[in-house]
């Protein structure tokens, strides 16, 4: 399991890049009034057909085939985290168009992982795919954070 929600976001973003996405949009919001945490990752990657989609959500195998083994637990991890925190998990995918994954949790739930280091996640994703457009919007009580790789890219050296 990932200890921070920002690690789940990194996992989803890496999925998007593995699917050949050239555009990834990440939205994070903490709503104190409604006691809700929500995250959403949308990409324009190749998407998954029904069989691959079901397999990806099951946690019983990767959609990857061939020589390299993979894990196939990323989405199942997020679903488990969401459901453990009175939340829910939604995902949709359309072959040739992309995938969107969303999770919601009760913000004050004792088991809800902290958001963690979202900036480190953004940095990792930007390094992983220098060519892809990466947009992040984070609205939380303490901070709002917006990032667009097309305008804000200021990679730490060495890049």
């Amino acid at each position: 399991m990932h200890e921070e929600l920002s690690l789940h976001i990194l996992d989803l973003g890496m999925n998007s890049l593995a699917a050949g996405a050239t555009s990834i949009s990440i939205r994070v919001s903490e709503d104190r009034a409604r006691d809700r945490f929500a995250l959403l990752v949308r990409d324009n990657g190749r998407g998954m057909g029904r069989a691959a989609f079901v397999r990806a959500l099951s946690g019983r195998g990767s959609t990857k085939t061939g020589r390299r083994r993979a894990v196939g637990l990323g989405l199942a991890f997020l679903r488990q985290a969401a459901e453990a925190c009175e939340g829910r998990f939604r995902a949709a995918s359309l072959p040739g168009h992309g995938t969107v994954v969303a999770a919601r949790m009760r913000l004050s739930h004792v088991d809800r992982p902290p958001l963690g280091d979202l900036a480190a996640t953004v940095r990792a994703l930007a390094l992983a795919a220098p060519g892809a457009r990466l947009r992040v919007a984070c609205r939380a009580a303490e901070e709002t954070f917006a990032f667009d790789s097309q305008t804000d890219l200021n990679l730490p050296s060495p890049a």
């Binding site: 990194l10 890496m14 593995a18 390299r68 993979a70 894990v71 390094l127 730490p156 060495p158």
Partner: peptide, 27 residues
């Protein structure tokens, strides 16, 4: 991720410019 962050900071601190960084998926 945090190992990467530590390493990038260390590379930066020492001013090593003959290094490039890449990220891959599950291996």
């Amino acid at each position: 991720r945090d190992v990467m962050t530590t390493m990038l900071d260390e590379i930066d601190k020492r001013g090593l410019d003959d290094v490039e960084v890449a990220i891959t998926g599950e291996i």
